[in-house]
């Protein structure tokens, strides 16, 4: 499956691994905080509307 990377396979794979891990971390943290804040705001607006 993997192309033949020759003697540099560790180098290339670790570069791709590290970058994708960093990008993934950024996306996960962003989505996690985003959904939490959105839920919090919706709940708060609902409550305020009920209270008048």
């Amino acid at each position: 499956m993997l192309p033949d990377l020759g003697k540099y396979s560790d180098t290339v794979l670790s570069a791709y691994g590290a970058s994708l891990a960093l990008l993934g971390l950024l996306v996960v943290l962003t989505l996690w905080r985003g959904t939490r804040v959105r839920r919090e705001m919706d709940a708060l607006e609902q409550r305020m509307r009920k209270d008048g």
């Binding site: 962003t30 985003g34 804040v37 705001m41 708060l44 607006e45």
Partner: peptide, 22 residues
């Protein structure tokens, strides 16, 4: 990412404002 995160920041700011008003 910037669009999404800006949306999050706007909502977080709104939560802060709503809580202050409350």
């Amino acid at each position: 990412m910037v669009f999404y995160r800006t949306g999050t920041e706007i909502r977080a700011r709104r939560i802060k404002a709503l809580l202050a008003r409350q």
